[in-house]
Amino acid sequence: MNVFRLTGDLSHLAAIIILLLKIWKSRSCAGISGKSQILFALVFTTRYLDLLTSFISLYNTSMKIIYVGCAYATVYLIYAKFRATYDGNHDTFRVEFLVVPVGGLAFLVNHDFSPLEILWTFSIYLESVAILPQLFMISKTGEAETITTHYLFCLGVYRALYLFNWIWRFYFEGFFDMIAIVAGVVQTILYCDFFYLYITKVLKGKKLSLPA
């Protein structure tokens, strides 16, 4: 565990909590892509199946349970409790265009052709693109609430910090995982455009709105 890894995890946790609180406090999930949230729930479910097979540390186990629990709670709030506020008309990204190729890739490029490993690989690949329905939704409506941009910022920073974690681990532990690294780079790149808007607009007190 190094500082990048820990702050990355905390940033990820902050993102998840920010989103849950935003929906809970405003009693509304307007502007949030339910499809992205379903994909994240699928990511955590397929990645953390090892909760049932191996124990790594109390930190590892509790964070996994919190992540997966919050992911399902978010999906529940969007599709059940506050369903009336869900903006389905703007959440039109075709997720099968992500899930099917990612599933195929997980079968073809993995560390070991076993069910758990393929599911883990699937989750890594899927996570890298799971935010696309949310970004698509923002590009369609042309704007995002400021709290939603804080969520996205924390979520993007998390994977960027993991990149530094992997550089650290490569140098100091001789450890690297090519699948995670490549997917992590892709994932971080997808946020670059958003990072630019966040820094130039939101941090200067303006609402994130895209030119028409």
Binding site: I56, M63, E117, D177, A180
Partner: peptide, 10 residues
Amino acid sequence: PEEGDEKDEL
């Protein structure tokens, strides 16, 4: 260590 050895990351 072997690639993708132990999955201690989240």
